[in-house]
Design a protein around this nucleic acid. Structure first.
Lengths: 291, 291
DNA sequence: AGAGGTGCGAAACATATGTTTCGTACCTTT
DNA sequence: AAAGGTACGAAACATATGTTTCGCACCTCT
């Protein structure tokens, strides 16, 4: 487990001590690391011109229990961001002690959350976020929709956005007024809709209404085929993997915050001035505690 | 390249025409493309919670002869990706200076966010979170307070918590009723207060009121000496470093979610039953979109 | 020369995999 | 109510996979 110093190094250092046939196998593996990740053991053996048993023997020779372990190692190596956390999580759940179990759960949650966040800043998502900013900057009004568990992410954006732009509208009707804020929405506006499975009807309806009014929609959601992402002008698909029954909105929140940061950075000094003005105004309302 | 129209696009465009079960499979594939490259068809089917036959049927439905072909496509996609990273980086550095600056900002935000999150799961915080759970489990009522930018984190917890416990109260008075919910708070209750600098007066007042009524407070905040953490029963100090004028509540949100996950895990089957009941109730209200 | 040891590949083994088949449940449509 | 049609999962199927076993060939060392 934790002792897994890089197997590639191990293979190189032990190379001299291996039998000729094993060297042949080891050499092929060193030359074609991706084959380990992607092909089967027998297929690799065939490619290396070695019987399967040699490969198994090689495994034991370098102190690896099973081919699975070896393959897993190379698979996670191939993905710069290891995704095999889920499996490890399942393993750790088997521990018996209570506090121990809690600790393991939290560790596993930590890894998952980091995965979720780093995935949200992949090159693809980054360029989409930049494009999204341009769309927001050119919009007349910016409608932000998020219901249920997605509400925090929507709120976060709306709250921060309003500090430097006054054309942001958070669509969160109370007392059954949801949707009222959408009156007048049109092709020159933009809607940012946040939502993951299970999709809340209100959100989907809002998106559909936006489309019917020819208003482009930016979808912050969990899948390319989520009902929110359908016909979206831009899709920001973020991971929401979670150890609990509840999807994680950490990455979504992070993305929303990043959008704000980007908008401010692109807005330059003008944006900062507006923020200062907003804070002054809040001071008048005695919102903050003084130091 | 001729026949290699991107299978991912094909999957998205045909999605609506697929049968429900195939959609389930297609969706899992869209959300976990690497699983196609690295795992077996049966393993993927298991992960997608679909019988193997559905995956085969999906293959024929989208016009792919065999699973091998499909897998090959995703494997080459996986291998080509690192190359496109570098290419895009080079392109953008030469052509567009503005985009480059944006990308760097986002990369830096990414690192910061990951730092914030991983810091929130330090051994110290982990044990505090476990202790916090015990306190919550023993409380009569659980009051959750968070104003302004901290509201999302508070809301997130309250929303999820209420799905399996009915003694949670989100203190978010609208129309000037903030604080009304605190009536009757006492020593057997507990308050979870979320807030970072600048501290919002309402939150601090709520915490002070809780103390005056001998109600223990759990502080999710940015410093050991934050006004919210003063005299707290338990302090969950999370980082909120950010590149923008605005603090990041990503880590705070993550911690709140983790608390929920922990409470559910410790609650065992009973908690799960309650969640099921809550979801049924939401179904009655027609909240969710059906699949 | 023979005993003991090592390296090796063919084959055997149990299991997993990709695909097809088949019966049933659930729809419309008449 | 009956007929036709689609969607679906369980099981059956042949094949492929990872691992172990077995016996042979080739070494050394006395």
């Amino acid at each position: 487990m934790g002792l897994q110093t890089d197997l590639r190094e191990k293979l190189i250092s032990d190379y001299a001590k291996l039998s000729p046939q094993m060297q042949k196998a080891a050499r092929y593996i060193l030359d074609h690391p991706n084959d380990v990740a992607l092909r089967s053991m027998r297929a690799l053996a065939r490619a290396a011109n070695v019987p399967p048993s040699t490969v198994t023997r090689l495994m034991t020779a370098i102190g690896v229990e099973t081919w699975q372990d070896f393959r897993d190692h190379y698979q996670t190596r191939l993905l710069d961001q290891p995704a095999s956390y889920a499996r490890r999580a399942r393993e750790t759940q088997k521990t018996d002690n209570d506090v121990d179990r809690d600790q393991h759960l939290l560790e596993s949650i930590c890894r998952t959350e980091i995965d979720n966040v780093s995935d949200a800043y992949s090159p693809d998502l980054v360029s989409r976020m930049i494009a999204t900013c341009e769309a927001i900057e050119n919009a007349r009004q910016v409608f932000i929709v998020g219901r249920g568990a997605a509400y925090p992410a929507a709120f976060q954006f709306a709250y921060a956005y309003r500090l430097f732009c006054d054309n942001g509208v958070l669509v969160d009707g109370h007392s059954g007024t949801f949707g009222d804020e959408l009156r007048g929405i049109g092709r020159r506006d933009i809607m940012i809709a946040v939502g993951a499975k299970p999709y809340i009807r209100d959100t989907v309806r809002a998106v559909e209404f936006a489309h019917s009014q020819h208003c482009p929609v930016i979808a912050v959601t969990d899948s390319d085929v989520s009902p929110i992402a359908t016909d979206a002008h831009s899709k920001l698909v973020v991971r929401d993997t979670s150890q609990s029954f509840f999807q994680s909105f950490t990455a979504a929140l992070s993305v929303m915050q990043a959008l704000v940061a980007l908008l401010v950075a692109r807005g330059g000094p003008k944006a900062l001035q507006r923020i200062a003005a907003a804070e002054e105004q809040l001071a008048v309302f005695d919102t903050y505690l003084e130091d």
